[in-house]
Amino acid sequence: MYRPVIAPRPDSPSSQAVGVDFDETLMAIDERGWMGGQVYGEPIPGAIEALRLLAQHRAVFVYTARHRRFHDAVAGWVTRHSGLVTRVNDDPDRAYWTEHGTVLVTNLKLGAAAYVCDKAVYFNGDWTATLATVTRAIGLTQVAV
């Protein structure tokens, strides 16, 4: 399958960023589970090195489903483990992140050249195959389209 390289372009802000999910992509959650949104887990092996590498080449944002009141804790976790400068998103209308050198923490899925997520399903233009993958993932056994 051919996948084009998405080069950063000045006229395309989304081409300049990579979005990385937080829970179960950067930070492991153990048997304690969600724990009311506390940020307590250790990095998933290889996650910090990957985050640093991505940040050398693109603007990076970390996205999370956590409420905004936990974003400072997420940003602190990222900085503590990676040494990267972080900033919490203060703009609920932000559509893009293009600032190199600072990792943005947000609960928005901003425009990006690529997303890294533990729950993602790749869409290759074929809804039949994609729907089969999604229905299996959510536990549906028979779906009529």
Results as ranks from 00 to 15, higher is better:
1 M>R: 11
1 M>K: 07
2 Y>A: 06
3 R>F: 15
3 R>L: 14
3 R>S: 14
4 P>E: 15
12 S>R: 11
12 S>Y: 06
12 S>F: 12
12 S>G: 04
13 P>G: 06
13 P>I: 03
16 Q>Y: 02
16 Q>K: 06
18 V>L: 11
18 V>S: 04
20 V>W: 01
21 D>A: 03
21 D>R: 01
22 F>A: 04
23 D>L: 09
24 E>T: 02
24 E>R: 14
25 T>G: 11
25 T>A: 12
26 L>E: 01
27 M>Q: 11
28 A>F: 10
29 I>V: 13
29 I>E: 09
31 E>F: 15
31 E>G: 15
32 R>V: 05
32 R>W: 08
32 R>D: 12
33 G>F: 08
33 G>R: 13
34 W>C: 01
34 W>P: 02
35 M>D: 07
36 G>C: 08
37 G>L: 06
37 G>F: 13
38 Q>Y: 05
40 Y>C: 00
40 Y>I: 03
40 Y>P: 00
41 G>Y: 07
41 G>P: 02
44 I>V: 15
45 P>W: 05
46 G>I: 02
47 A>F: 07
48 I>E: 09
51 L>P: 01
51 L>Q: 00
52 R>I: 04
53 L>G: 05
54 L>W: 07
54 L>R: 11
54 L>G: 02
56 Q>E: 11
56 Q>K: 12
57 H>T: 10
57 H>C: 01
59 A>V: 01
60 V>R: 04
63 Y>G: 07
64 T>F: 02
64 T>P: 03
64 T>N: 03
65 A>Q: 04
66 R>V: 07
66 R>L: 04
67 H>G: 01
68 R>E: 03
68 R>G: 00
70 F>E: 04
71 H>G: 00
71 H>N: 01
72 D>V: 08
74 V>I: 14
75 A>E: 06
78 V>I: 14
79 T>M: 09
80 R>T: 07
81 H>N: 13
85 V>F: 05
85 V>Q: 05
85 V>N: 11
85 V>I: 10
86 T>F: 13
87 R>V: 04
87 R>D: 05
88 V>Q: 07
88 V>C: 12
88 V>N: 01
90 D>Q: 13
91 D>C: 04
92 P>C: 13
92 P>E: 10
93 D>L: 12
93 D>T: 13
95 A>Q: 06
95 A>I: 03
96 Y>H: 13
96 Y>I: 01
96 Y>N: 14
97 W>I: 08
99 E>V: 10
99 E>C: 01
100 H>F: 08
100 H>R: 14
102 T>A: 08
105 V>W: 11
106 T>F: 07
108 L>T: 00
108 L>F: 00
109 K>Q: 11
109 K>N: 05
111 G>L: 05
114 A>S: 08
115 Y>E: 08
116 V>I: 13
120 A>G: 12
120 A>L: 13
121 V>K: 12
121 V>N: 06
121 V>I: 15
121 V>C: 15
124 N>I: 13
125 G>I: 04
127 W>N: 11
127 W>P: 14
128 T>K: 11
128 T>S: 12
130 T>I: 08
132 A>S: 03
133 T>N: 06
133 T>M: 03
134 V>F: 09
134 V>P: 09
136 R>V: 04
138 I>D: 09
139 G>E: 14
139 G>L: 14
139 G>W: 08
140 L>P: 01
141 T>S: 11
142 Q>V: 10
143 V>W: 01
143 V>E: 03
144 A>V: 15
145 V>M: 13
145 V>W: 12
